[in-house]
Design a protein around this nucleic acid. Structure first.
Lengths: 149, 149
DNA sequence: TATTGTTATACTCTATAACTATA
DNA sequence: TATAGTTATAGAGTATAACAATA
């Protein structure tokens, strides 16, 4: 158990009733677990999510992947560069500025392993929720997210 | 609307069914809104949460605040130093190593304003959920979080 | 030995500005 | 004018190691 995760002794937490606070702290737990789970593949969560999106949308561009995942163009560049350098993805010019992205065969293999890691990660963290409870949470989060735009 | 928030065109998102993915993205929206809402008080979310915990637990120590909020000792130091420098909190030695923390009168005033900001922030983001739906989500998140320890 | 507080350091993600090249 | 991609830079949060002083 990490230091910061130790249980408080007898202090009250005035934030305990706030949904945003709980969302935030849970998301930290989720990200930490995912980061550790993907470490054997030498993938960061952002890189793994990019591989999954390319696998589902072969020929897409890096700007489009960024829009799907909510990652800025400026932050996509080094992520894509790292995946290219490792030979996990390939680029082919569509026109003078856009380039189609596809997984290499090595990338497809890593992507399959990443999919398994993600599935196990979700099962480990959320498996105790009923399928219905999980779906309800996703639906509620989606509606909240959409209300913001 | 920021660049990264633009809606995707027609690409599929293979992560769309994953609860952890939605939790993470919602938590980003929550943190961004809270950060912007607290900016007029010149408080970061972490600083505001520290003020709230001290207000509820006068005389607590900085290590204890860190344990309540899940913040490492090493990261508490500069946060507490900043609040001290601004005169929002006061320190008094308990023994040779621990020091009791309390809000100054200026700190109490800022803390009250922060409480209002947080209330409005939660209402703005989650007000569309019924009281019951919100309580259910908090309860589910709490149970998930506890399962991790 | 364990705890408090501190410093230094590193990593991930998010965000903006500025630039080149192309549509 | 708008878009694609890049670089540089900054900020917030999380995390580990190492140290001094104290319990």
């Amino acid at each position: 158990m990490t230091e910061a995760a130790k249980r408080p002794t007898h202090r009250t937490d005035p934030l305990d009733s706030l949904l945003g606070y709980h969302l935030r702290r849970l998301s930290v737990v989720v990200m930490t677990d995912l980061t550790e789970s993907l470490a054997p593949l030498q993938l960061k969560p952002a890189e793994a999510s990019i591989l999954l999106v390319i696998a589902s949308n072969p020929g897409t561009t890096q700007s489009e992947v960024g829009r799907v995942l909510g990652i800025f163009r400026a932050n996509m560049a080094p992520l894509i560069a790292a995946l290219l350098k490792r030979g996990l993805i390939e680029r082919k010019a569509v026109d003078g500025r856009s380039q189609a992205l596809r997984l290499s065969s090595a990338g497809a293999a890593v992507c399959r392993r990443a999919q398994n890691v993600v599935r196990e990660h979700e099962e480990r963290l959320f498996g105790r929720l009923t399928r219905e409870a999980s779906a309800t949470m996703v639906a509620q989060i989606r509606s909240l997210w959409q209300a913001k735009h």
